[in-house]
Every structure is written in structure tokens, then in C-alpha cells.
Nucleic acid binder design. Structure first.
Lengths: 317, 317
DNA sequence: GTCCAGAATTGTCCATGACAAAACTATGGT
DNA sequence: ACCATAGTTTTGTCATGGACAATTCTGGAC
């Protein structure tokens, strides 16, 4: 009934596809009903058996939806057309300017040179300094890796290696800063369902050199606990990170609810790819769709609260 | 329709409960049909609205099931009875012997002293050395933290902080070892659906001091990519980690399939809490239910392959 | 004590219907 | 020409109830 994979790599059942693509079983069945795709075969027991090609196309569709496409428009396109769309959507490519680093790293990934990759990242980080590394190297690299994966030039496990090594490099650099105290105190985490932690590390890497004290809870903190953590640690700022795939709706609801439950004096930041798709303004939530804006946001927080505490005559504790 | 949380912290819809408990929507509806629990109220639209008490009990049930209980037997117990069962199940408590460290760490967690925690862990790690730290400190600590959470003495966010800080400490210590080469080469990761990466780091912390070269892909590598990664990196050993909550069935299927697809000369290790619940023997898979057995397993791997290569007259590459 | 067949338990899947939120579109006012 | 608003289409999620296979349990037979 629910073998993980039936035939060596050929067929997947519906929960396997859910895991592989991030599309829920309900959605998979509904698309089949509405659009006629995917149209998996059935086993003896009448259960859906998806072929790898279908799964590949589903992944491509999901990826496009994560950056704003609607399923009905693209579901009947071929895999090639989807790739073309992805290219177009990421805007006119400015590879011409500085593709050298990206190409180097991609080559290291494709040759599975883990030590070389580690070395290259550490090297670049040292040369540029932590903040510049985050803003000018990681950001375009992430984009390049994502696109290469979309094109099929990069396998999933190569992307995994990239993420892992990048996290190691960032973590090591962050640890090199003294961390015991600092102001403001910032709580970093993601909502339940959001598994990507690289964004959190990038934010931490930008903030720590500015003299903040970051407390990271890792990924997937339930809302209720997020509230409790913010109060328990008496943080001044709560920073959430959302990857492209996170459902806008869930994020907006959660942020609104969090805003209601946190003291007004606590600032709430929401950043990451997803925030580019947010339409409504969320009162009391600072959206940071571009990670480069993080340091600016910190600066304005500082001037704002310097004024407030001057008025109130209270020392920031 | 699907607000993340409707009323400030009082009611959850079914997908919220799925996220919070790890029980699928199908299972939640089925339990309601079969056992009459949970029995959520309905909103205007006829949709289930779970109360926080129900969710708490569901979490306790899930936790007991993860260590082998069956739902039908325990679903009608009260929350108190479930806690008692959990206590009983973890065996006679031997806290009396060396609870000092555990108590210290738990106190640091409960007072939200992040810097203190970080300091305590680093301190202990330095004093004991990496391997001893993993075996004699982390393992009982993990148990203590898990039990404290079950008793309600520890909040989720406190557990998150613990995991995060422990990972930071381990990662820093592992990085202190030279890593460029070594033998055997080991690929470390988890199956899709398994999000806990602490186990991986613990294994890596045990192996690296033994002179192995570890390549970690982080968590949730799809099977197909796991296979490709093992071949691309020409590893000698693939090590998977499974937390208590991982479905045995899914693990067995995946391991069997992986075993079929990997060359016979590649050893396959499966470790973590889940492996204690495995009944059948999995041919060609080395089960390591107790992390302390890791170093022994490495040693026997070495003697085994020393003999083989002697026979074959081939140098280990 | 061990082993096996039948019974009970449990999770996953299926089909279809319904509906609300979000996105898109057209229309009328300034 | 531009913008707001109301109507329409698109899309995801939920509900119900039936089915069934895999697993675990149980009561003998050896």
C-alpha cells in the first residue's frame, strides 16, 4: 500500500509525492480532478502511482508558484517551457557583471569537492568580512544555486551540501564575535512549517557585528512558544524568516496574531523571499523583503528608541 | 476558514493541530470516528475547532506512541495518567547517580540564561573532550530534557534553545579538527520527514576524532539523491539518523531500497531512537540503537575492510 | 516455550461535494 | 486617464464515509 518507493526509483505513491514536492495530497487530487494533471497510473489497489517525470514537473510548477505564478496558467506547460518561465521571472540576468564567483562555487558543487567548497567559502568570507559576505556573496549565490537546480544543472544533494557548508561557515564566523551581551536583544526563529534556517543565520550574521545580542531558537517555533520566549528573554525585537515557499496566508495570520500578543514596545520583523508576495500592509510588522535592508532597519530602530527613551527618561534595560 | 489560530490561543483548526502534534489530518478524523477522541467543536462552517487541552493530550499520546504504545490503549486516559505512563516507560529513574549536570542545565534553561547555557556547555565539552561529552553528557541530557518537557517542566521554546545551543557547541568543536581527508569517508544525513539534526552532529562528533572524513548533507535528503550523493562522493559508509517519532515502516522500506541500490561494498548504518523499535532484521543494514556503539561499529568496519583489502590486495582508496 | 492462523487494530487512500479566501476583471465615478 | 468597488473566477482546504492492507495481538497446537 504505502511503500516508500515501489519500483526502484520509478514510481511514487501520493504521500511520497507530497514529501518530494511540498504539494499536499488534497492539492494533488484536486489538480488531477480539475486540470487533468498530474494523471498518475493506479496500482492493483486503485492507488495513485506517480512517475518521476510527473514529479519533476510538479516540482517545477511548485517553484514557479512560490514566486507568484498561478497553477491554472502554467500547469499545462511542458517542463522546458516552465524552465523558460523561471528564467524570465528572475528578471534579466545580469550574470555578465560578476558571475565568476557563482560559477566557481557551482563547479565545486558539481565536482563534489566538499573540502574545496568549504575552503572557498571560508576564504571569501575572510576576505570580504562577514556582513559584506552575506550581502554580496551569499545572496547572489543562493539565487544562482536555485536557478541551477531549476535548470537541472544541480542535484538536490548538491544543493544540500551547499546549504550545509554555508551554514557551517556562517556559524563559525558568527561565533568569532563576543556574544555575551549587547543591545538590542533579538529573538530569531521561523514559524512552524518553515524549515529553512539559512535566512536566520544570514540575519544573525548581519546583526551580530552591529553589537546586537541574538538569541536563535532555530526553526519551527510554535506561535504560543514564540510569544513566551520573547517575554521570557525580554527581547526588544523579534525577527522571523520566511522562504519563498511559505504560504502568505499562514504568515499574515500568524504575524497579526503575534502582533496582538506581544507588547507594543517589541518590534516585529518579517523577512525572506515570501515577504515579496505580501500585498496587504500588516500593521505593526516591519517587512524586510530585501535582506540588505536589515542593517538600515536596525539603525532606524535605534534612533527611534533612543528618542523614545529620551522622552520617557528611561534607560534601556 | 483556515485562520492559523482563531481566538487568541484558544482554538486550532485541523491543520494547526497537524502541525502542532505531527498527527495527520486523516488520523485525527479517524480517531474521532473510532474512539470519540478528540471531539472538537465546530465553527459556523462545520469545521473542527480543537481546544488547547485536546491538543496537549494529543501531544502526550503521540509521544507515548513514538516509544511503542498503541493509541487504542491509551487514548481514553487522562493527561495525568499519560504522564505517569511516560515516567514508567522510561524505566526506573537512576537520577540519583548523577543528576547534578542535568539539573544545572535544566535550571539554566528555565531561567532563560542563554549565555550561561552556552558557557556551561562549552565548559563541559572542554573538560570532558568531544567524544566523552557526546556519550556521557548529551545523551542523558537529551533524555532529561525530553522528560522535563513531557512533565510540563520545560516549554517548547526552552527545548529549542537547548537544541540550538548544543548544535552550536558541537559544531564548533567538530570544526576544531582538521577535516580535509581521512578514512573512511562517511555520508551523514536523514530521510525526508526527519527534521532532527542533532543526532547527525553527535555521530559526526564521535567519528571525526577517529580520523574519518564526514560529509553531512543536513536533514531530509530524498532517497534518490542520497544514492547519488553516496556514489558521487565515493563514500565507504552511509549513516542515517532517525528520531523516536519517525515511522518504522517508512524507515525499513527506505533502508531496504537504499541497500538494493548501493554497491555492496558500501556499509549502511541506521541509528537513533527509532531503531530501538525495529523488529525485523534488515539484511545489509547495521542498526545502532545505542549511540555508544558507534565507535565500536567503526572499529569493526575497519578490521573487516582491512582483511578484505588484504585478501584482494587492493589499497583502500 | 515456540509457532501459526485467524481476529482485532490501525493508518492511509479514495471519491465527491462544498465553500471561503484570494486573485483577477469589468464598470462607473472623478 | 485613473482609481475604487463590486462581481466573477480561481484555488486550496475541509468534510464524509467507504475500503483495505499492514501490523499486532491472541488462542490454541505441537
Amino acid at each position: 500500500m504505502h511503500n516508500l518507493i515501489e519500483n526502484p526509483g520509478l514510481l511514487l505513491n501520493i504521500s511520497g509525492v507530497e514529501r518530494e514536492t511540498g504539494l499536499s495530497k488534497d492539492v494533488l487530487r484536486m489538480w488531477e480532478r480539475r486540470y487533468g494533471f498530474p494523471k498518475p497510473g493506479r496500482d492493483d489497489n486503485g492507488e495513485r502511482q506517480y512517475m518521476v517525470e510527473e514529479v519533476a514537473k510538479l516540482r517545477a510548477i511548485k517553484r514557479l508558484m512560490d514566486v507568484g505564478s498561478r497553477p491554472g496558467k502554467i500547469i499545462h506547460s511542458s517542463l522546458g517551457e516552465l524552465s523558460a518561465l523561471a528564467e524570465a521571472r528572475t528578471g534579466p540576468r545580469r550574470d555578465v557583471i560578476a558571475p565568476a564567483i557563482e560559477r566557481d562555487i557551482l563547479t565545486l558543487l558539481q565536482t563534489h569537492d566538499a573540502p574545496g567548497l568549504q575552503h572557498a567559502l571560508a576564504n571569501m568570507l575572510m576576505r570580504q568580512g562577514l556582513q559584506k559576505f552575506v550581502l554580496e556573496t551569499i545572496t547572489p549565490l543562493n539565487r544562482a544555486v536555485g536557478e541551477a537546480w531549476m535548470r537541472g544543472d544541480l542535484q538536490v544533494f548538491e544543493e544540500h551540501l551547499y546549504t550545509e557548508q554555508m551554514q557551517i561557515a556562517l556559524r563559525a564566523a558568527i561565533n568569532a564575535f563576543p556574544r555575551q551581551s549587547g543591545s538590542p536583544r533579538v529573538l530569531l526563529t521561523t514559524f512552524p512549517g518553515e524549515q529553512h534556517g539559512l535566512g536566520l543565520l544570514m540575519v544573525e550574521a548581519l546583526l551580530v557585528p552591529e553589537g546586537t545580542q541574538c538569541i536563535s531558537l532555530g526553526v519551527q517555533t510554535p506561535l504560543e512558544d514564540l510569544r513566551r520566549a520573547a517575554l521570557a528573554h525580554k527581547v526588544h525585537l523579534v525577527a522571523l524568516s520566511f522562504s519563498a515557499a511559505f504560504p502568505v496566508r499562514q504568515a499574515s495570520d500568524g504575524l497579526a496574531m503575534l502582533r496582538r500578543q506581544l507588547p507594543q514596545t517589541m518590534t516585529l520583523w518579517a523577512g525572506g523571499e515570501m515577504t515579496r508576495r505580501v500585498r496587504k500592509t500588516l500593521p505593526g510588522v516591519v517587512l524586510i523583503p530585501d535582506i540588505a535592508a536589515t542593517i538600515g532597519a536596525l539603525k532606524s530602530w535605534r534612533t527611534h528608541w533612543a528618542q523614545v527613551s529620551q522622552y520617557l527618561g528611561t534607560a534601556d534595560r
